[in-house]
Design a protein around this nucleic acid. Structure first.
Lengths: 110, 110
DNA sequence: TTTTATTATCGTAATATTGCAATATACAAA
DNA sequence: TTTGTATATTGCAATATTACGATAATAAAA
């Protein structure tokens, strides 16, 4: 054993966890921060800025892309990556649901 | 190689990614949802509800606890787990920062 | 104290993730 | 077409995560 038993959970639980997992690595947080802070958002810059090889950066970008957290469009012989606002809003809504449904205070159990 | 190069990133990047990573598993999302939906929040119920062994559930609870997403207090010979509202608010603030700083529209690059 | 009930930890096997060199691919310019 | 530049993919080694049975630890009840 060792594989995540994803088939034993609901689609919603899997989808939410995939979103969070995609941001569960410091390199991918650094990528998000760099995209936010830079005026352009071309991958070449990332390779210069991050302490990782070009192959590894490309792999992290792929993971962010497959979770729909970033999206890219071709620009000449480089790729422009930007954040996907819809996915960020989904994060916000998931967290808000958690906060709104929080029942700790009314149970006085912690 | 294969270890995450966490020493190569900032403390903030590591801290944020640890938070997200903790929610990056369907079982841990299921635990959060169950705590939110139940009137009490005792671990014993979780073992009955989740498709995982007691040992595995305990391990997931430990991870959520070490990320400060849940907190527990002893209640007889069981433990009462509740969400940590401060950490949830931290999530919300991180996501809000991402959304507020989003520069995609003004760059018109995607 | 002994028993019962509940959660935590240990040890181990299986799978997943991370990172990078090497290579492939794509496109623009000469 | 060839060359230069940039990103993606492949293959592999090292580390991390996941899961669970067995066992330990803790505390209430008998």
């Amino acid at each position: 054993m060792g594989a995540s038993k994803s088939e034993a959970f609901t689609d919603e639980q899997n989808e939410i966890s995939i979103l969070f997992k995609a941001l569960g690595h410091p390199a991918r947080i650094a990528i998000i921060q760099f995209i936010l802070s830079s005026k352009s958002c071309i991958c070449g810059d990332l390779v210069d800025v991050l302490p990782l090889s070009q192959a590894t950066v490309s792999q992290h970008l792929k993971e962010l892309k497959s979770a729909n957290i970033i999206q890219g469009s071709i620009e000449g012989n480089s790729i422009c990556y930007c954040l996907n606002t819809n996915t960020l809003e989904k994060f916000k809504s998931i967290i808000s649901d958690f906060i709104n449904a929080d029942n700790c205070a009314k149970n006085e159990c912690c």
